[in-house]
Amino acid sequence: MITVNVALFATLRQYNPYGNTSEPFPVQLPEGSNIASLLEILQIPPQESKQVFVDSVRQEPDYILQDGVRVAIFPPIAGG
């Protein structure tokens, strides 16, 4: 298993299993898991607009996660 540290922002905070907060929390995944499987575990629906950053770089759903990485997930915000 690997452990990644996840932070969810804005409207996506509701998918944080530890409460409605942007504080990072650990998620355990089988080795070789990608971003898509992380989103599934977090129960973030595919239709939710989001960008996923792994250690500060945006990555696509098929990106394989490594042990210990920081994952930040944002919705794009357009208003002004």
Binding site: T11, S49, Q51, R58, P75, P76, I77, A78, G79, G80
Partner: peptide, 21 residues
């Protein structure tokens, strides 16, 4: 474009007119 992919078109994001401010 490093931050957002190109397909963030109209209707895929929340705006002040849909979610308030």
């Amino acid at each position: 474009s490093c931050y957002l992919p190109d397909h963030t078109g109209p209707g895929t994001t929340v705006s002040c007119d849909t979610a308030g401010i």
